[in-house]
Design a protein around this nucleic acid. Sequence first.
DNA 1: GCTTTCTTACTCGGATACCTACTGTCCGAGTGGAATAGG
DNA 2: CCTATTCCACTCGGACAGTAGGTATCCGAGTAAGAAAGC
Lengths: 159, 159
Amino acid sequence: MRMNEGVEWAAHVCVLLHWAEEGGDAPVPATRLAAAYDLPTAYLVKQLQALGRAGLTESVPGRRGGVRLARPAARITLMDVVAAIEGPDDAFACTEIRRQGMNAERPARDFAQPCGVAHAMREAELAWRRALAATSIADLAGSTPAGRAADARRFLAAP
Amino acid sequence: MRMNEGVEWAAHVCVLLHWAEEGGDAPVPATRLAAAYDLPTAYLVKQLQALGRAGLTESVPGRRGGVRLARPAARITLMDVVAAIEGPDDAFACTEIRRQGMNAERPARDFAQPCGVAHAMREAELAWRRALAATSIADLAGSTPAGRAADARRFLAAP
DNA sequence: GCTTTCTTACTCGGATACCTACTGTCCGAGTGGAATAGG
DNA sequence: CCTATTCCACTCGGACAGTAGGTATCCGAGTAAGAAAGC
């Protein structure tokens, strides 16, 4: 069970976009974002499109276009970013194997209650989601050393 | 990010092994376990081997051999099962992209503190692990309707 | 009757094939600001 | 000087190839219980 690399990219890029917003340099073109962390541009664009579909970012077409956050960084959580990139599905998918084999003859109503394994897995994932939802992009930006944040703003503002 | 199907299998199989233990029918051959839920035997054996390597189950070779739990079901948690099948690695793997691109010139000591994204992800995974560790195989067995548990014991005891 | 051998029913580990999903690249279409050309 | 056209820099979406890992199967080697054979 490995998470998409795109999640890491997207999280860092959202922090960059927050800094750009503060510096008055929004929107930022994808090529510049890719250069900031030396990422393959074409593939990063794919992740940015996923963020856009999820409503986290807005894209401005045209000559001085680019990408910017669709709402304040304090109201975008890591959970939002993970959900945007990974999709809405749970990691654990119950396939109801309990109905097969020795239980194949049982009527469906015997399995009205959710499987205990699936229930416990779901609870654990909810705990995970709650923890992710507790950290916002603004929190991440705030925990970065001031020197690096200033340099990032400078990099994004440069022509 | 999808979890291995083997996790579901392994969890249900551990519950079966617990019932077999109670009924005095341990060890249980893999073929019987596979038949209980109509799973492909050869592939289930692979998952059982992973459980064995993790120390959750013991296998008895030879004619009336099979697999049994290595310790009481109350002391085997869902976390143990997930770790055995999925491996010990975290789902989120930080690749330190913050060191590249615009920060490529910085000395390594500038990044002594862990990346904020990685830290938040790690905290969330710990919450997930804690939740999984709160449910034991015995809990899962206890939450199954008595009728199905009895039938399972009968199935495992049958020649 | 006792010991030895054989058969049988298991597990274990590696090798292999297939398929899905992630990773990465490329191309054409659409959009809007800025520069340029024409009146 | 004002308007219309062209150009350029950007986004979007789909198509495509390569690769890693999950899914699934098969085979040979090892082990022990019970049956069979020999003394």
